[in-house]
Structure formats: C-alpha cells, structure tokens
C-alpha cells in the first residue's frame, strides 16, 4: 500500500474537512502524482487562498503559503517569478478563484506563467456556510440563494482556455485515477495549467439540493461527468445537467518566466 505518511504533516490531523467531502481524495491524488514524478518537495511550494480547498497545503509536508482570499495566484506569481526553479502549485476553490480572485485567474492564465492550479469546484462556499458562488448552477439553492440561484455560472475551464492557459483539464473525485493522471500532466506542463476538479460538498451544497447523502453526491459525479469526446457530440438537450470531463486544452507556447529570463539575457548583453 502507498505510504502517504511520508508526505503529510501528521501533527495537523485530523483535518477540518467534513465526512463525505472530496477534498481529501484530491490531496491523496496529488500526493501520488508528486511521488510518481519524484518531485523535490524542498523545491516545491504550495500556495492557496481561503476556503476549505485552501486548507490542503497545511496537510502536506512541503513549502506552504496560505494567503488571503482570492489572492493565491498573485502570491504564487511572486514566488515563481522570484525563483523560477521552484515548482509552484496553487490550490483554490470555485469561490476563491472565480469570484474574489477572478481577475487574477484570468491574468495568470493570460501571462501563461508556469503554475499548476488545482481548482476544487464544489459549487458552493463550504467553509463560510453554503453561500452561492459563481459556479453554483442556476436553480440550485444556497444560503444566499434560498429561492434558487438566478445567476448563470462560469465555464471556468473555458475561461482559462480563452485567457491563454497552456493546459486545461476537468475531472472529478469519483474518477480518481483520471484525477491523478490529469494532476500529473498538469505538473509536468510548462505554462499555466489548470485542473478543475469536481468535488462534493454534502454539508453545504448537498443538504440544500436533495443530495445530503455523500453517496448520492458521488453517484451524481459518476452519472453526470461525461468524457469530452462524447459530450461534444451531444445535443444541447442531452447536455442538460451534464459536465464534460477530459483534457480540454494542451498546447505548447511561450511561458512567462522563461521569456523573462530571455529578456534579462538580452538587456544584459546590450
């Protein structure tokens, strides 16, 4: 059996996540991916914002930077640009990345700076008690959308692609091997890489939306995450309630810190 203990800060357990939360599954997938890639944890930094997802770094034995709400990407940009030899992983949630941190999300992708971003999408603000986020589906209930959410949600992965990311994939915690595989690919990509990971929040989202049982939420992921190739061929009607999963973008292009190093060389020889 895989020994996770080597990678965690055992003294910080038990973790704060609720029973049925998917965040621990992502933590384990990330640990396995890091292990298989043989990454140096001394030379890696995990940066997070605020929210349940953003507590992930605290459990990992690695350099960790738990920042302010929505601002993980600017802090991570500073770390990476100051020392491009560091591998920088950003952990964020749907509220953190697409609401308060939405502008940073767009611009980090536009710059194509070499950051690996794991965006835990649970459709809700879990830590603060179930308020709606920019990812809450229309009609879903939240503590600040008790009559049902009116606002359309972001296509977060699409946003990252449009803004200029190098690698974008969507997966979920039920399909855990795919999740690990995509994290691994993202870690290996030079450039802004995003893995949007659908993860259940039975406590804050499920209870208000007829999925209080964690198993129901897992089954929802099993039944509604559709491989992107199949999703692309579906009619709008068939797509109702479904979410596409797979690698949505994987391209090679100029990466910001590498370009900056070239600039330094150029101006120093002038």
């Amino acid at each position: 059996m895989f020994n996770y203990l080597e990678y965690i800060r055992e003294s910080n357990f038990p973790h704060i996540w609720c029973a049925g939360c998917g965040d621990g599954i992502i933590l384990k997938a990330l640990i396995r991916a890091i292990d298989k890639l043989g990454m140096s944890r001394d030379e890696s930094v995990m940066v997070s914002g605020i929210g349940c997802s953003s507590r992930t770094p605290g459990y990992m034995d690695i350099n960790t930077l738990h920042t302010t709400h929505g601002r993980a990407l600017p802090f991570a940009t500073g770390v990476k640009l100051a020392n491009p030899d560091l591998k920088v992983i950003v952990i964020t949630g749907d509220g953190d990345a697409t609401a308060i941190g939405g502008n940073h999300f767009i611009h980090a992708a536009r710059r194509n700076i070499d950051l690996t971003v794991l965006l835990y999408n649970n459709y809700i603000y879990g830590m603060t008690g179930g308020q709606c986020s920019p990812m809450t589906p229309v009609g879903s209930k939240a503590s600040t959308a008790q009559h049902g959410n009116l606002e359309p949600s972001f296509n977060t992965s699409g946003l990252a692609i449009a803004a200029g990311a190098s690698f974008v994939a969507r997966t979920d915690v039920y399909h855990v091997q795919q999740c690990e595989k995509f994290i691994s690919k993202a870690l290996q990509k030079k450039g802004f890489s995003l893995v949007e990971i659908m993860t259940p929040c039975p406590t804050a989202y499920g209870r208000r939306n007829k999925m209080a049982n964690p198993v129901t939420m897992m089954e929802w992921l099993k039944d509604n995450m559709v491989p992107v190739a199949k999703y692309d061929k579906m009619t709008d009607q068939e797509r109702e309630g479904k979410v596409s999963a797979g690698i949505l973008c994987d391209i090679d292009k100029a990466e910001f810190t590498a370009e900056y190093d070239k600039l330094i060389k150029k101006v120093r020889t002038e």
Partner: peptide
C-alpha cells in the same frame, strides 16, 4: 501579493 511571494522566495 506578488511582492510578499517574491520576498518569501528570497528577493
């Protein structure tokens, strides 16, 4: 945020 990150990375 960026200058705090950069400072922690040693600059």
């Amino acid at each position: 945020g960026a200058i705090i990150g950069a400072s922690l990375a040693g600059m």
